[in-house]
């Protein structure tokens, strides 16, 4: 556990130092990396620890983005808006979780898929509040572009660090232990006295709060949001691809997965713009068919082979 904290602090310091000295393109990449890490880490709470296949990440992200956007346009200070966005996403998750967390497997997956679609439709049909299909403009920060990019990197970095810290704390806590029991056998866990319902709701709320804040920071960062952008189903699928890449239910797996996916994405974006969705699809197919236990299973296989020889 001590080692985890050391890695976290060193990694965060490295990203901060790289960002401070890098150019704006590089800073942009690091900001996206921190955002992806936050999303992947958050998905891991419900999808990895508790084993519930959630596709609600896009719903929380969009909800956070719109909460913060609407509040900022009312003139509230930016940090307060980000915090309220996280709170709103968490409350929403706990309420909706109360309704759908008794579902298992396919039904849970579909219910979570539907939530984002529904929020998107609600945003689309309330143009007075959210701008509807026209999208929503956010107030622009009156500071120079160079400072701005570093401010948003710092914000995303802090969020990613807090999320990872939460994961480290969760892993050794009673809650984390209970969630892993639920993942292995929910009925048995209930019989042994794990309050499955409370634990799952807590995990679902945790998987929402940081995602909502990430959505809020993203909205302020890009200054303009629209429903197809922030409720995109890819926002729900990418985190789980990252977690699958890095290793499910681990602390740093999601972050490594985020790095790998971002690197692949950037390569494909640069070279094959029109087929980047297909390229992501191919990555997913190869990952699921050949590396279902993540990249590290490759290393383990290799070392096992070497040990045999």
């Amino acid at each position: 556990m001590k080692r985890d904290w050391v890695i976290l602090v060193c990694g965060a310091a490295a990203i901060g130092a790289l960002g401070w000295s890098g150019d704006n393109y590089f800073i942009r990449l690091l900001t996206i990396l921190c955002m992806y890490a936050t999303l992947a880490q958050s998905w891991n709470f419900i999808g990895g620890f508790a084993g519930y296949p959630s596709f609600a990440t896009a719903a929380f992200f969009g909800l956070g983005a719109y909460t913060s956007g609407v509040l900022q346009n009312q003139g509230l200070p930016i940090l307060m808006c980000w915090g309220l966005a996280g709170l709103c996403a968490a409350v929403f998750a706990v309420l909706i979780g109360g309704a759908i967390l008794h579902l298992r497997g396919h039904y849970f997956a579909i219910a979570t898929l539907i939530i984002a679609e529904m929020l998107r439709e609600i945003v689309n049909t309330t143009p007075n509040l959210t701008g509807g299909g026209m999208g929503l403009n956010l107030p622009i920060l009156r500071i120079s572009v160079d400072v701005q990019s570093r401010v948003f990197l710092l914000a995303m970095l802090v969020l990613a660090v807090v999320t990872t810290a939460a994961a480290i704390l969760l892993q050794r806590s009673r809650l984390g232990f209970g969630l892993r029991c639920i993942q292995q056998n929910e009925s048995a866990a209930s019989i042994l006295g794990v309050n499955a319902y409370q634990y799952k709701t807590a995990a679902f709320g945790m998987s929402a709060v940081f995602v909502g804040m990430a959505g809020a920071i993203y909205a302020s960062w890009v200054n303009y949001i629209e429903p197809p952008d922030v409720f995109d189903i890819l926002i729900a699928v990418k985190p789980l691809v990252m977690v699958l890449l890095g290793g499910i239910g681990t602390i740093f797996g999601p972050i490594i997965g985020a790095m790998v996916l971002l690197a692949l994405e950037e390569l494909v974006w640069r070279n094959f713009l029109t087929v980047h969705a297909a390229a992501l699809g191919v990555i997913i197919i190869l990952l699921v068919l050949f590396l279902p236990n993540g990249l590290f299973s490759l290393l383990k296989d290799l070392s096992a082979k070497r040990a045999k020889q």
Binding site: P53, G105, L240, L280, G281, V282, I285, P292
Partner: peptide, 24 residues
């Protein structure tokens, strides 16, 4: 090849194939 895997895996796989087909 993954028909016995949990729902997350098969769903993600069909999503990946869908991305490819839809992009095509």
């Amino acid at each position: 090849r993954v028909i016995a895997a949990p729902v997350l895996i098969t769903l993600t796989l069909t999503f990946g194939i869908d991305l490819v087909l839809n992009n095509a």
